[in-house]
Computed example of a mutant assay.
Amino acid sequence: GTSGVELSAGFHWYLKHWCLIHISWEKTGGLQLSSVPKVGSLPHVPSAGILVQRPVPLSYYQNAVTSSYSHAWWSWERWEKEIDWMVLQGVNLPLAFNGQEAIWQKVFERYNISRRDLDDFFGGPAFLSWSRMGNLHGWGGPLPQSWLDDQLVLQKKILARMYSFGMTPVLPAFSGNVPSVLKSKFPSAKITHLGNWFTVHSDPRWCCTYLLDATDPLFIEIGKAFMEQQLKEYGRRSHIYNWYISLSIF
């Protein structure tokens, strides 16, 4: 292998199959290293080497709700461990969704949407996956500005670590989910007021979000602005993006 992912995955294969160790999350065994031989006694592989080929070129990791189910409260130290685990497993296409609310805040400011307006749009940290998908809004919020800023800083550390191993992080893209106030600012835009999602009991404080039609010129404009803001923050290194929205809202 030539990339950091390939070399690390090869090293892990040797440790697992020749030294019989197990590297996992703490709740599923953690680091089990007792079988590693002493220095000078490590098993030798055949001089011709061993060829291990991945069955597919890309190994995708996580989904759109993992950020709320699993790592809503992770620190950089925990993220660093996770990325190291990813690279040992050969993951080269991981989701990287942190910090996007700070990006959206900067984008929507261009459309005269205030931070107070966004308090009703963003969900709380443990519910962001569902507010991002348009299932609900405002639930568990509002998000403190300090949290938004810290998440953007954290995302930059995450991306730097992923890039250092040769990974291609998957960044978010615009799905059409917009704050309710956008409809009053662009009354001619094709914005649909969606129905209730089953967990918030039709309560207007949290239910019934707004979706901008993908055929509307404003969709292209906002989507482009979001991509440009990400490129400004993160640089032009990742070219894979995730467009996601929950079908349960229709």
Rank of each mutant, 00 (worst) to 15 (best):
T2A: 12
S3C: 02
S3H: 03
S3P: 03
S8I: 00
S8V: 05
A9F: 10
F11N: 15
W13H: 15
W13V: 00
I21G: 03
I21D: 02
I21K: 02
H22G: 11
E26C: 08
T28L: 04
S34E: 12
S34H: 08
S35H: 10
S35Q: 14
P37L: 02
L42N: 08
P43N: 09
H44N: 14
H44F: 10
V45Q: 13
P46F: 09
P46W: 11
A48F: 09
I50W: 04
P55N: 02
V56D: 06
V56I: 14
P57I: 02
L58W: 15
Y60D: 00
Y61H: 09
Q62P: 00
Q62I: 00
H71V: 05
H71Y: 15
H71I: 08
A72R: 01
W74S: 09
W74M: 11
S75F: 06
S75G: 10
W76F: 13
W79R: 03
E82S: 12
I83M: 07
W85M: 10
M86P: 01
G90E: 07
G90D: 08
V91P: 04
P94T: 08
P94E: 05
P94I: 05
L95K: 04
E101R: 09
A102W: 07
Q105A: 07
K106S: 12
K106T: 07
K106Q: 13
K106F: 00
E109C: 05
R110A: 04
R110C: 01
Y111Q: 04
I113D: 02
I113W: 00
S114E: 01
R116H: 12
D119H: 11
F121S: 05
G123D: 15
P125I: 10
A126S: 09
F127A: 15
S129R: 01
W130Y: 13
S131Q: 02
S131L: 04
S131V: 03
R132S: 12
L136A: 11
H137D: 00
G140A: 03
P142A: 03
P144N: 05
P144I: 04
Q145G: 13
Q145L: 12
